[in-house]
Computed example of a mutant assay.
Amino acid sequence: MKLQIVPASTGVLWVKLGIQTFWRQPMALAALFFLAMACMSLVTIVPFVGPALALALLPCSSLAMMVAAAEATQGRFPNPSLLLVAFRSGTERRRAMLTLGVLYAVSFLAIMGLSALIDGGTFANVYLGGEPMGREIAEDPDFQTAMWFSMALYIPLSLMFWHAPGLIHWHGIPPVKALFFSGIACLRNWRAYLVFGICWMTVFLGTGLVLALVTGVLASLIGAIAGGIMVGAAMVLAAMFFTSVVFTFRDSFSAPDGSAEDPLDLPE
Rank of each mutant, 00 (worst) to 15 (best):
L153T: 03
A116E: 01
M160L: 05
A146T: 02
M151K: 09
A116G: 08
F149M: 04
Y127F: 15
R95Y: 12
I155E: 07
E131Q: 14
V102L: 09
E139L: 15
A146Q: 00
D142G: 06
M151S: 12
L159V: 03
L159N: 05
L157E: 10
Y127I: 14
L109I: 08
M112H: 01
G130V: 08
I111G: 09
I137S: 15
V126D: 05
S107F: 09
V102K: 01
G121T: 03
L128F: 05
F108S: 13
T145G: 13
I137Q: 13
A110M: 09
Y154W: 13
G129Y: 08
V106S: 00
L117D: 02
L109N: 10
F149T: 05
I111P: 11
F108I: 07
M133K: 11
G129P: 14
L153D: 05
I118A: 02
V102M: 03
V102Y: 01
A152S: 13
S107T: 13
Q144W: 08
A152W: 09
V102H: 01
V102W: 02
S115Q: 03
W148K: 11
M147N: 07
L98W: 00
D119R: 14
I111Q: 09
L128S: 13
S107Y: 10
S158K: 01
T122P: 10
L117K: 06
A138F: 13
S158W: 04
Y154I: 13
I118K: 05
A116D: 01
A146S: 04
E139A: 15
M97R: 01
L159G: 04
F143A: 04
M151Y: 12
A146V: 01
L128V: 06
L114G: 10
M147C: 02
I118R: 02
L153W: 08
G120Q: 07
L100G: 05
M151F: 14
A138R: 12
I137A: 08
